[in-house]
């Protein structure tokens, strides 16, 4: 099954169940926190096991440059466009 479809179906299943079954907010937040930390642990291991750190030198340098510049411009453009369309603000 296509990955995007699988994710959408899982979200939809959770959404529908959430509408029917009453679950404590604290329980859900705790569960999300624990699984998020597990996810970060897995991604950390995947990152270093991929050889990214051992690679060193030029490949890592170029990767850092691209990710940092692309991310920075994405945020700058987002801030500008949200302001232009009147969608920005201090909503939290």
């Amino acid at each position: 099954m296509n990955y995007s479809v699988l994710i959408l179906m899982t979200l939809l299943l959770g959404y529908l169940l959430g509408r029917v079954v009453k679950v404590e907010k604290k329980i859900i937040e705790r569960s999300i926190m624990v699984t998020t930390l597990l996810l970060i642990l897995i991604i950390g291991s995947k990152f270093s096991a991929s050889g990214a750190i051992a690679e060193g030198g030029a490949i890592l340098r170029d990767s850092i440059i691209i990710s940092f510049i692309a991310s920075s411009f994405s945020v700058i453009v987002a801030i500008l466009l949200l302001r232009i369309f009147g969608l920005g603000g201090d909503r939290t």
Partner: peptide
Amino acid sequence: DLSSIGLKGYTLLDFVLMALIFLIGLDLGR
């Protein structure tokens, strides 16, 4: 590489991800 640990073609990363997405869906539904 913890992400490569798997069962029947699915990795640990897949299981954790799906659990998270399910929990977020549950939260949005609630």
